[in-house]
Amino acid sequence: MCLAIPARVIELLADEEALVELGGVRKRISLALVEGVAVDDYVIVHVGYALNRLDPAEAAKTLALFAEAGLIDGAASKAAP
């Protein structure tokens, strides 16, 4: 029940709710736990509630780290016997 994927906010609704899109499916969720969410933000949704906002800059940094680990390795393994 912990599995959840980031969802994009497509519309803010009354009562601290929002409409999000999750892999092509639209869903109504609660924003009661997060402040300052705007349309097009990505949020982590769990049991119908957004737990936090996703930080796009940090996501890009993490992806760059993945690529870097692979690259450093590629160079090193060529040098290795």
């Binding site: 993945f66 690529a67 692979g70 450093i72 390795d73 590629g74 090193a76 393994s77 290795a80």
Partner: peptide, 14 residues
């Protein structure tokens, strides 16, 4: 991503 996964796996192995 599968390609990145292989890169990371190789980095772990080293």
């Amino acid at each position: 991503d599968g390609g990145l996964a292989r890169g990371l796996a190789a980095a772990i192995a080293r």
